[in-house]
Amino acid sequence: MAGNTEVGAGAAATAERRGGPMVRVEDLHRSYGTGAAAVHALRGVSFEVPRGELVALRGRSGSGKTTLLNLVGGLDSPDEGRVTVDDTDLAALGENGMLELRRDRIGFVFQSFGLIPILSAAENVGLPMRLRKAPAREREERVELLLTLVGLAGHAAQRPGELSGGQQQRVAIARALANRPALLIADEPTGQLDAETGLSVMELLRAVVRTEGVTALVATHDPQLLGLADRVLELNDGEITEGRAV
């Protein structure tokens, strides 16, 4: 696991060179629809995520968690306010710049796993590196390291349908880390898993933050999982109503 230490050290050095938090959200508003039928998903949300921390976002269904994650990840644009990720103002990026940011500096993990059924675990993990045309040797070494990191070194050749739900989510986490992102965004990553498996996946995310030197913003409603976060933000009806350190 020496490679893991080297990767983590490199990420830590990068974090030291950069200034400010990994994520800064300022007075964020997002609505859907118009007039009386408008749904105000976010109402003036502001917060920061320090580098190297795992911050959990808690809130009931419909509180605005997914909308907020989509805005932080550059998958949607706010009506008002500003999002800064890794010292980059998302509003200043054009379409190509946004695509590069999502490809190279942000990793996404979703509740539905999102793996490609016809590809093996190793091929799924290596796909982001193929998209940026990384050399074959680099891809192979990184895939091997990541599958070892998530405890699936012996399952590289298996396809998603041959893996359990927890194993699939571990593959999804490894894929999200393929291009060494600065920020990992996870939307209810344990939502389809039983309690024991969900806890093991959340513990893996906790370990990934330390090993890979990545910052994580994770939406979850499971009280048991919230205890693994460095900080918890409470989202209620589109507003941050509480934040606590763990």
Rank of each mutant, 00 (worst) to 15 (best):
Asn70Ile: 03
Ile116Thr: 09
Gly107Val: 08
Leu101Asn: 02
Leu99Met: 13
Phe108His: 13
Ser164Asn: 04
Leu71Ser: 06
Leu115Pro: 04
Ala157Leu: 11
Ile116Cys: 12
Asp89Cys: 05
Arg159Glu: 10
Ala136Cys: 02
Leu145Tyr: 04
Ala122Val: 01
Gln158Tyr: 06
Met98Ile: 12
Ile116Gln: 08
Glu138Ser: 14
Pro78Leu: 02
Pro117Asn: 02
Pro160Gly: 12
Arg102His: 11
Thr84Asp: 06
Ile118Pro: 10
Arg159Pro: 15
Leu71Pro: 07
Ala122Tyr: 07
Phe110Glu: 04
Ile106Arg: 10
Ala134Met: 07
Pro78Met: 03
Gln169Arg: 13
Val125Asn: 05
Asp89Met: 05
Glu95Tyr: 05
Asp76Asn: 04
Ala157Val: 10
Gly81Pro: 11
Val171Lys: 14
Val109Ser: 11
Asp86His: 10
Glu80Met: 02
Thr88Gly: 03
Val125Phe: 05
Gly161Tyr: 03
Ala91Ile: 00
Ala91Gln: 08
Gly165His: 12
Ala186Ser: 04
Glu162Leu: 02
Asp104Trp: 00
Leu149Arg: 13
Ala172Trp: 12
Glu188Phe: 12
Gln169Asp: 11
Asn70Asp: 13
Thr88Pro: 04
Arg102Cys: 14
Ser112Ile: 00
Leu75Ala: 11
Arg132Gln: 03
Pro135Trp: 02
Asn96Thr: 08
Glu144Phe: 01
Ala91Asp: 07
Glu188Leu: 13
Leu131Glu: 02
Arg175Thr: 05
Glu144Trp: 01
Leu75Ile: 10
Met129Ala: 09
Asn179Ser: 05
His155Val: 07
Glu140His: 14
Arg102Lys: 14
Arg82Ala: 12
Asp89Ser: 09
Ala178His: 13
Leu101Phe: 05
Asn96Cys: 07
Ala156Gly: 13
Arg159Cys: 14
Leu163Lys: 04
Arg139Tyr: 03
Asp87Gln: 15
Thr88Ala: 11
Leu90Val: 02
Val143Ile: 04
Leu131Asn: 01
Arg139Cys: 03
Ile106Asn: 09
Ala121Leu: 06
Gly126Trp: 01
Phe108Met: 10
Ala134Cys: 05
Leu146Arg: 07
Ala182Ile: 00
Leu152Arg: 06
Ala186Gly: 06
Asn96Arg: 15
Gly74Met: 05
Leu152Met: 08
Asp187Pro: 08
Gly107His: 05
Arg180Gln: 12
Gly161Ile: 09
